[in-house]
Write a protein that binds this DNA or RNA. Structure first.
Lengths: 465, 465
DNA sequence: GGGTATTTGTCCGTATGTATG
DNA sequence: TCATACATACGGACAAATACC
């Protein structure tokens, strides 16, 4: 067994790891049987013209992983359990090439709503928070962690929400979860099955699907310029209402203060609850900031939901909800059933990030950035598309809607845009009955300033305006 | 002499100076006598998880100041003159009381099953994986990430499961999720509501609660020495069976190969599915490794579930399940409804950790550690409690059961233990009807070796044996 | 069969290159 | 540029196991 050709000093991987891999592989393949003696360190070191210690290092790694054992003053012996790779190498399952989905990176200009602008993320600050929290809390990561979420983070969230959204709560009301859908799922189980839930039409399709999956009785409620129609709510008398007041999910309208008060009054009178989903409440552009429903509520009827996906990293997967006191007990119960879904360390990193003021800083920076992008998109649409479209939902959030006054339907508009390298999105899916519309959605957060201008130009060409 | 608590990476002073001060102080106090040998650089560096060079720096500084001398190839030796300290340090400030909390917690010897041993977690390796993956994938953290989980991690899990458990799957079958309960929840929605599910009695109470919350029809099936009773399964004909074959959740028995084959045969014949929850399959101690149900299955009837909670960090919150092909489509659909629940970065960190062999290393190390602890607890029980108890479920996993032959019930046994500072746990809650038992559960993973011995001694006293 | 030379793992200090801030 | 910390690799001293005479 001559190993010499397998060692290469010029490779990136160190000598001892090359040695380690060599032996491990030969054990897998059965060339080194259980119990066999490995060459002594000196012998091998001489043969390979390397140091004993290097061989020793390789052997130690093998030993650490349980493949070999040392008999002092006698030698090293292969001692792996068959179970370690009993099934290995007879044939590995072929890894199916699943990535075709990635579609050729044809230079799309993609107005997808979910995208955000990555170039401004404060990497080094985040990284620092991450490392700090690991070094600082290290040993605490072993506790399963609080089911509701780390106390520290919950306190910070409560404080932030109070200052920025007027939400009034204590840390015991905050529940951290791995994304809005998970929290909605938990919420569904807090309520009895088969209750009726008022759902904005159009609204957030994912939420509707989760309600459906939990066999709730969905009552579509129309939305007008001021928000959800109270009249219809009163007619239907659902047990629960799901709304997105600070930026209506599809239409982008902001619920007026009057409408809010009416809705709260109705909920108090009927002992109903309101789910206030403030999924991108951080970003508004005009007018007075309207207080959140939760902040206006006097009767503990509001469940407030928020997330860090839009305003920080979409892939971070940290969201939260605020339970009103009547739901606390049941809420904690259901939550503890699923345990906490966000890793302790992610939570503590975020807490550190917030404590250092980096969060606030980032929000302000992004708000400024998005405000600028919004101005650019509005200006470009005005100039290029002019009279042929009407802009809606432009007062908050990270997207706008275009009502298009052309003889095409939603589908055609999207198809034509696609042929010109621009991805835009339909709104009909947000409606209960997927009615035909002439409206398309443009999320601008993830598109660069120049691409916004160019994208709108391309729309003009695509639609032959 | 354990120095660990005296080192703190977050302090301003560098590690080597902290070390330097520690030794200097101890020489002053006479704890390190003249001529005594200091720990070798390697030893100390390993023990403290720092680099040799750091220790070397500290020793060099001490040497430069004449406190110690190096004998080449032999060690470093204290060599100060008493006069060196004649005027210095009239009284050193008492070393930081960092361990007080630990002292208080020490009152309890807690045999809680969920605890794990934290002292062996390779912090620096984890930290490194974390930083590396952030630097390497940074910009990719903006994509929402693949709903099933990052391709890289899914591939590694598929490979690991194939080698260690004989599970046969491709990455497209793997679904990553924030904890076993979340995955169970998703699974529940993959199946129709109101189907019947065979549930081991006794079994995993949390799983049962989730099935109940999803309004499944729960069919308790008794368990004998070989595993779940096939006869009863055949009588009841549930649509689905939930089992923990590699370490029955409550009783700790390992399902025999015959029983496995019978169960699979039944499932194939009845077009039923089996959920194989391998929650701590990494740890078995005796006998041949039994192949997983998923590996034995020829008809795509098995859903395999596993987790990194037991074997890595409980607070990490990364679990996975393997769907058989008939469930793929629906499974992906439901999963995408909730989006991916684990942050991209956590996934990529874990992937990096696995790729570097750190995961395998850690598993082997923990296996060894737990094997030892198991031996200690068995020996201690044998010696202290002897004839008065019978040990069950000792062949795998991280806990044992004790059938106690004394005139006390479960509750009394636990109460008495508690009064002597030992926490042990009931098993009756795992049964459908919470029957009275005389059996208690002792999880030993999170208890130190000396505490195990002392804890068992205290049980002897508590029960007046 | 008992002493001796050799082999072998273990442990030690040292030197150099690199990443980070 | 410098301080700090880590990773890799080297060569030698030591004592026990083993082989050999």
């Amino acid at each position: 067994m001559d190993i010499t050709p397998f060692l290469n000093r010029n490779l990136d991987s160190p000598l001892y790891q090359q040695l380690y891999r060599y032996f491990k592989e030969n054990m897998h393949r059965g060339r080194i049987q259980k119990g066999m003696k490995l060459p002594s360190k000196r012998l091998l070191a001489n043969q390979l013209s390397i140091s004993q210690t290097t061989v020793e290092r390789a052997y130690e790694q093998l030993a650490a992983e349980g493949y070999i054992v040392s008999k002092p003053r006698s030698g090293w012996f292969a001692d792996y359990h068959d179970s370690d790779f009993a099934y290995a190498y007879d044939r590995m399952p072929s890894t199916t090439p699943i990535q075709q989905e990635a579609e050729e990176n044809k230079q799309w200009i993609d107005f997808h709503y979910g995208n955000v602008d990555s170039s401004y993320f404060p990497f080094s600050a985040w990284r620092k928070s991450m490392v700090n929290s690991l070094d600082q809390y290290g040993h605490e990561l072993y506790r399963p962690g609080h089911v509701l979420g780390e106390f520290e983070l919950r306190t910070l969230i409560a404080e932030y929400l109070y200052q920025s959204r007027g939400v009034h709560c204590g840390p015991e009301q905050v529940i951290i979860g791995a994304g809005n859908p998970i929290l909605l799922q938990i919420l569904c189980q807090v309520f009895e099955p088969n209750i009726s839930i008022g759902y904005e039409d159009p609204g957030y399709p994912r939420a509707r699907k989760i309600f459906e999956a939990n066999r709730m009785n969905i009552v579509p409620i129309p939305v007008d310029d001021e928000g959800i129609c109270i009249q219809k709510v009163k007619e239907q008398q659902p047990n629960l209402v799901y709304v997105t007041p600070s930026h209506q999910f599809t239409l982008g309208t902001i619920m007026t203060i009057n409408r809010r008060i009416q809705l709260l009054k109705w909920a108090a009178e009927n002992q109903s609850f309101i789910i206030e989903d403030d999924y991108d409440g951080e970003f508004r552009y005009t007018g007075q900031p309207v207080p959140s429903l939760q902040g206006l509520d006097q009767h503990n009827r509001v469940i407030y939901m928020g997330t860090f996906s839009k305003s920080l990293l979409p892939s971070l997967r940290i969201s939260y909800m605020i339970l009103p006191s009547p739901l606390l007990k049941k809420g904690h119960e259901i939550t503890s059933l699923y345990k906490q879904t966000v890793s302790c360390h992610s939570q503590l990193t975020l807490a550190e990030f917030i404590k250092n003021g980096e969060w606030q800083k980032h929000i302000n920076r992004m708000r400024k950035l998005y405000r600028k992008k919004r101005a650019i998109v509005l200006e470009a649409v005005q100039r290029e598309l002019g009279e042929h479209v009407r802009i809606r939902g432009e007062n908050s959030g990270l997207r706008i809607l275009l009502d298009v006054y052309l003889p095409f339907g939603e589908k055609e508009l999207i198809e034509k845009a696609k042929k010109h390298g621009v991805k835009i999105y339909p709104v009909s899916l947000s409606y209960q009955n997927h009615p035909p519309t002439k409206t398309v959605s443009l999320g601008f957060a993830g598109v660069s300033e120049s691409d916004i201008r160019e994208g709108i130009k391309k729309l003009k060409a695509a639609w032959k305006i």
